[in-house]
Nucleic acid binder design. Structure first.
Lengths: 243, 243
DNA sequence: GGGGAGAGATGCCGC
DNA sequence: GCGGCATTTCTCCCC
C-alpha cells in the first residue's frame, strides 16, 4: 500500500503517463453529476492531465476528465483516494480505491500525426475535382467555404446557371443533413437575393424518411462514395508505403 | 521478446483485459483508412474485444476497434505485429511493434452501472413536473415521446389552448436545435392539420445566431438549467450516500 | 474563447 | 437490423 501510494505520487509529480487497475468507486460533479459503485477498472492519467476510467467493456470511458485537470492522491483512513479538478470547467472527480491490481508509469514520446482518408473533406475535394459526380455541367466555385453564409461543402453553378449548394455526408444522410442543407440554401438565397437555389445531398446512401423530406423541399440526392485512397491496402500489405 | 509474445498470446487466448505500452505504427482500413507512424502509445484490448490505442495526449483514442473484433499476434521477422479484424464492419487494423515498454493483463469484474444526473431527459422530466418553467398555464401532455412524428422532449398545450413543442438542450442551444424544433413543429402541424403550433427551446443559453433564427421563425427561447441533483456534493463529500 | 460542424464518432432505445 | 438522437460528446478550424 505504501509502495502504491509512493508510485502514484511520483508519477503524478513527474507528469508521467500513469496507468493502473483498481477496484474503485467514482463520483463526478461538473457539467453533469455521476456516481459509479465499486468495480474493477483501468485508470489512465496522461501527461496532459487527461484522466480516463475504463470498465472491461465498451469503447467509451465510463468517467473522464479532460486535459488540464490536476490530480492529487490522498490516504483517507487507509484507503487511497484520487481527487481531480479542472478549474477550466469547474469539474471535480473523486476515485475511492479499495484495491490496486497493478500500477505502471512512464513517459511516452509520440510526435506522429494520424493520416486519415475517406473523410467528408475528401469527398468534397473529389467532387471539386470531378464535378460531374453531381451533375453534367456542374461548375464548382468553392469547397469547404467558411463564409458568413456558413460552412458549405461545395458550392457552384449547374448547367442552367442556377446556384447549387452541395452537402456531403461520408455515411448515410439523415434528417439533420437535410435540415443543414436547407439552412445553407436559405442563407444563400437571402444573402444573394435569389429565389432559386438548388440543394444537393451527396452521400453513399440516405434514409428513406430523410429522402422523403428532401424531395418535399425540392432538393436532390446524389449517390457518392467517399474516396478510398487505400482500397488496395487490405489486399496487399506491401503497399503501406503508398500512404 | 519471447516472453512478451507468450504473455500477449496467453492474455488474448484467455480473453483477459490486456494493456501494454509500445513503440509502434498503426494501419487501419475499414469505414475509412488511416496510418500512424512510429511512436510510444498505450494499447488496451478489453474482454469484449474492444481495442483502444492512446497517444500521450488527448481524451480520444487515436485508433480503435469496436467490441467483437478478433486479435492475433504474429512474429514477422523479429517484430511483433497485432492484426485485428471485425467481420461485422469489414474492418482491419495492424499494429507493428518495435519495442514493448510493459505488459499487464488481468480479468476485471465490474457489475456496476453509471448513475448520471443532469441530462436532457432530466430536464424534460423537470419541466413535466414544473410546467410553469415554460410558461404560466402550460399543460404538458407527454414527455420523451417516441412517435412517428419524432422524438419530442415535452409537448402540451399553452394557456391559449395552442399546441406547444418543447425541445430541451442541456447545454447552449445552436442552429441544429432550432432546425430540430422546426422539424417537429412542421410534422405536428401536418399530422394534426393545424396551422398554429408553438415551438420553444428550453436550455441554459442559446447562441446569438441561433436565437436570431429562432425569432425569425416565430419560436421562443426559455432559459432553463438542467437539474443538478448533486449540487451539494462539491460542498460536502459526506453526502455521497445520498446518491 | 465562442461558433459551427465533422467524427472510422459511441451509446441508447424503440420499432 | 435501421432510425433517430443525446453525449460530462471530443476535436478541429475559423472568427
Amino acid at each position: 500500500m505504501q509502495t502504491d501510494e509512493l508510485r502514484i505520487n511520483d508519477a503524478l509529480r513527474a507528469k508521467e503517463t500513469l496507468i493502473f487497475s483498481a477496484n474503485c468507486s467514482i463520483a463526478y460533479n461538473g457539467r453533469a453529476q455521476s456516481y459509479l459503485g465499486f468495480g474493477d477498472r483501468l485508470i489512465m492519467i496522461k501527461q496532459d492531465g487527461t484522466l480516463l476510467v475504463h470498465t472491461p467493456f465498451g469503447a467509451s470511458p465510463v468517467n473522464y476528465m479532460k486535459g488540464g485537470a490536476t490530480h492529487r492522491l490522498k490516504n483517507v483512513g487507509g484507503h487511497l483516494v484520487i481527487t481531480s479538478r479542472s478549474s477550466a470547467q469547474k469539474e471535480f472527480m473523486e476515485i475511492t480505491i479499495r484495491r490496486i491490481h497493478f500500477i505502471e508509469s512512464l513517459t511516452l514520446l509520440d510526435q506522429e500525426k494520424l493520416l486519415l482518408a475517406g473523410t467528408e473533406k475528401d469527398m468534397s475535394d473529389m467532387i471539386f475535382e470531378n464535378p460531374s459526380l453531381i451533375s453534367p455541367g456542374f461548375r464548382p466555385l468553392s469547397r469547404e467555404e467558411h463564409t458568413k453564409f456558413g460552412f458549405i461543402d461545395v458550392f457552384g453553378y449547374d448547367r442552367d446557371g442556377d446556384l447549387v449548394v452541395v452537402e456531403c455526408k461520408r455515411d448515410k444522410a439523415d434528417f439533420a443533413a437535410v435540415s443543414q442543407l436547407e439552412r445553407y440554401v436559405h442563407r444563400i438565397k437571402k444573402a444573394k437575393g435569389l429565389s432559386k437555389v438548388q440543394g444537393v445531398i451527396a452521400a453513399p446512401t440516405i434514409s428513406a424518411n430523410a429522402e422523403t423530406m428532401l424531395r418535399e423541399k425540392g432538393y436532390a440526392f446524389k449517390r457518392v462514395e467517399p474516396p478510398r485512397f487505400l482500397e488496395q491496402y487490405g489486399k496487399s500489405q506491401s503497399r503501406l508505403g503508398d500512404f
